[in-house]
Amino acid sequence: MEKLFNLENVRYQYNQFQQALVNVSFDIEKGEILSIIGSNGSGKSTLLHILAGLVFPTSGILKFENHEISESALNKKDFNAYFRQNVGYIFQHADAQLFCPTVLDEILFGPQQKLMKKEEAMDIAFSLMKMLNIEYLKDRPTYMLSGGEKKKVAIAAVLAVNPQVLIMDEPTSSLDPKTRSFIIELIFSLNEAGKTIILTSHNLEMISHFQSRVAVLSENHTIERIGMPEDVLNDTEFLIKNNLISEHMHKHGTHIHKHLPGSLFFHKHDRL
């Protein structure tokens, strides 16, 4: 497989006392789904911000298709256009990325920059709205939407550019069960079409469905392990150590007892 992203000793610190990432090195291959998991504050979102070229490593090198991603590289118009069209980023809190007056404007923002014809851009926007059941919101200002609706609009706006890489920070958070299942299905289909998906999630069960690599960020802000879900998610001791699972309480009638989550997250399924 061809390398898409390459990270070498990437370190990121907010200030002298706050490390976000420490010596992170790994590759992301073209066409794979990479799930990044880790406890709160382990640096997942920062890692995604770095991969999306929104912040830059304090030290170390990040490459995309063998081109170094740095502030100076993205300051060049042509390289910025190339990178932004290829890499789409869906934020954890969708309202951060919505800035156009209405939902339709938001979705048309990408196609407009691609200098697409109006009819073609409209077709794309309406097909995405139909897919996500948000046609009725098209003229609504984005700040008047609920959390789930905002997330759907953000997904549609990013997909409108049809990027080859989709970076998704907690893609299913704040979504209703039906939309959540659809997003998982969408991730599968986009990946089948050859797109690379990088996502973070606390939902280990969802990740186990992808049957693709899992990277674990430890509380020390390093990549603790990277491997297939059957190796990572079945290692209970490792998951407890990295604060990814913990004992929880159950009540059966009057009897309360504690135990670890059921026998494990990894269930092998055939691909859809």
Binding site: H67, D78, I124, K130, Q164, F182, L186, S189, L190, A193
Partner: peptide
């Protein structure tokens, strides 16, 4: 939720 639009199922990366 309905079908995924066909344009999304084509991976057409933009080159430099």
């Amino acid at each position: 939720m309905t079908e995924i639009p066909s344009f999304l199922l084509i991976n057409n990366p933009v080159t430099l």
